[in-house]
Nucleic acid binder design. Structure first.
Length: 308
DNA sequence: AACGGCGTCAACCGCAAACAG
DNA sequence: CCTGTTTGCGGTTGACGCCGT
């Protein structure tokens, strides 16, 4: 059901007319005798049904052929995109969980803007979704700090403030439940509370000095994040291990649908806390500024920049 | 209530790699 | 090897909803 949420929310399904003046209804009538009359813009439920039905019968691939065979006045490219980003049964929707946010940050450290590569480690998430997340959320915070999202400074902030903060959240959630695994966390609104079947494997184990968060994927790969306390040092390892349950289903993530933006409402709080705690030794254990000689990026700088 | 600015996200575009003939 | 087609990717755009004025 969530698969069609966007239609409801955008309200464009029934009445939309494309840039070329195509009424949405036209897509459902023709049978596509004129391949040049291609539709663009938002997909209608009818088109979705056609595409999904055709793929269910004949499988995916050969998108151009598929588009015409399914009676869709769309380019193969458009069909492929729609399927991969929206209609695929295992696609997850809803906000990113703290684990996912952490993964995105860490994987971005490793691979940069290789969104599809990152998406491979996050089953059910699409590159488009991750890219949008990065642009709308992460870049927003870089902008708030008046630094470039790719700058060393911002990367340091992410690594030494943001990511530990996310881990704190993950830990707090884990601590709030008696179960050893995050998959059974308690609160119905908390992202971690989503049923295991659709969360994929996200596990966590504690020792006094180390916490490991592991996610596993259908692709057979897994990524684990390990944080060492009290230094808050973060280590990520990727390997090839277990399975993600993969069925995903549309409700996945919907339980986490409340905004849990990693820093929304907590960004300033986080910075403030870092200052209040006299935290530079705690929050910035290895700030790695020495090598570059860039000593301009102190907490005070962050704070003053953030505070206009 | 009307308006404008902003954030979000689905969809498109252009390019390049991979593949098939 | 060459050429045309398909697929995959990252960047960008545009429509919509929300919120503040």
């Amino acid at each position: 059901m969530d698969h069609f949420d966007s239609f409801g929310s955008t309200g464009m399904d029934a009445v939309w007319t494309g840039p070329c003046g195509w009424p949405a209804a036209a897509a459902t009538t023709g049978g596509g005798q004129e391949a040049t009359d291609l539709r663009r813009g938002p997909w209608t439920m009818e088109e979705d049904a056609l595409l999904a039905g055709h793929i269910a019968k004949h499988g995916e691939g050969r998108w151009n052929e598929l588009a015409s065979a399914a009676g869709l006045r769309r380019t193969g490219k458009s069909c492929r995109l729609r399927w991969l980003n929206y209609l695929r049964p295992d696609v997850r929707r809803g906000d990113f969980t703290p684990q996912e946010q952490l993964l995105i940050l860490e994987l971005h450290f490793r691979w940069g803007k290789r969104w599809s590569r990152i998406a491979r480690e996050m089953p059910g998430r699409t590159d488009n979704e991750i890219k949008n997340y990065w642009r709308t959320r992460v870049q927003k915070h870089a902008k708030q700090l008046k630094c470039d999202v790719d700058s060393r400074q911002f990367r340091d902030v992410m690594r030494h403030l943001w990511m530990p903060r996310l881990l704190e959240r993950i830990q707090a959630a884990a601590a709030a439940t008696p179960a050893p695994s995050l998959e059974h966390a308690a609160s119905p609104v908390h992202p971690l509370s989503v049923a295991p079947a659709c969360r994929g494997g996200i596990g966590m184990c504690h020792s006094p000095e180390t916490t490991t968060v592991t996610t596993s994927s259908t692709a057979g790969s897994s990524v684990s994040l390990e944080v060492h306390f009290p230094s808050n040092q973060l280590v990520l390892t990727a390997g090839s291990t277990t399975n993600w349950s993969g069925s995903g289903s549309d409700q996945c993530g919907s339980a986490s649908a409340r905004s849990d933006d990693m820093l929304d409402g907590s960004w300033s709080e986080l910075l403030a806390r870092a200052c209040d705690d006299g935290a530079d030794s705690v929050v910035f254990p290895h700030f790695e500024l020495g090598g570059s000689g860039d000593d301009k990026w102190s907490l005070e700088d962050i704070w003053s920049q953030h505070h206009y």
